[in-house]
């Protein structure tokens, strides 16, 4: 089986220590977490981990089984890129002088559909939301001019199909 990108979505109780438990499952199998995001979910008091891995479907399925087995995990799923709508966010901090000295920068801002978050005397900050490759392209375009700081978030994902979490939770409470 070939390696491919999978997004693992984990719905869980919001408990200290669960991240350690989940990351241990990847560590034990030498599978790198390419991206990780933890936030609240559509259900009150339920957290959502979004984990991106590059591995085989067989490994992904086994990992999801082990994750779901953890007491505080309500449900875990995995999806291919085709099955999800996904985005990442990035911030670029750039010297303000460049905005005036390098005409090309203004074009990059326009073409990349990014927003200027703040401008000060010394630097300005660009925010870009999109697919990984779009952020990479913008990074590559800006890099020759000098990037003071760069950061990219973990992937966030919603699935095209329905996620029956609310229903599962109601069943388990019965």
């Amino acid at each position: 089986m070939e390696n491919q990108w999978f997004t693992i979505s984990v719905y869980s109780e919001n408990n200290v220590g669960l991240l350690n438990r989940i990351s241990g499952i990847f560590l034990k199998r030498h599978i790198n977490i390419e991206s990780l995001n933890v936030s609240k979910s559509e259900i009150e008091q339920v957290s959502k981990f979004t984990i991106v891995v590059f591995t085989t479907e067989d490994w992904t399925r086994k990992i999801v089984g082990q994750i779901e087995k953890q007491i505080e995990v309500i449900k875990a799923f995995y999806h291919t890129d085709d099955e999800t709508i996904y985005q990442e966010s990035a911030l670029f901090k750039i010297a303000s002088a460049l905005l005036f000295d390098e005409r090309q920068i203004q074009n990059i801002i326009k073409e990349s559909n990014s927003q200027i978050v703040t401008v000060s005397r010394d630097f300005f900050v660009l925010a870009k939301t999109g697919r990984r490759h779009e952020i990479d392209e913008m990074h590559d375009a800006l890099e020759p001019f000098g990037i003071l700081q760069f950061v990219r978030s973990g992937r966030i994902t919603v699935t095209k199909e329905a996620m029956p979490i609310t229903q599962l939770l109601e069943e388990s409470i019965k």
Partner: peptide, 14 residues
Amino acid sequence: IVGISTPVTKWNYQ
């Protein structure tokens, strides 16, 4: 001990 015992417990809590 919660950190240490995580991989070898079904559940743990402090």
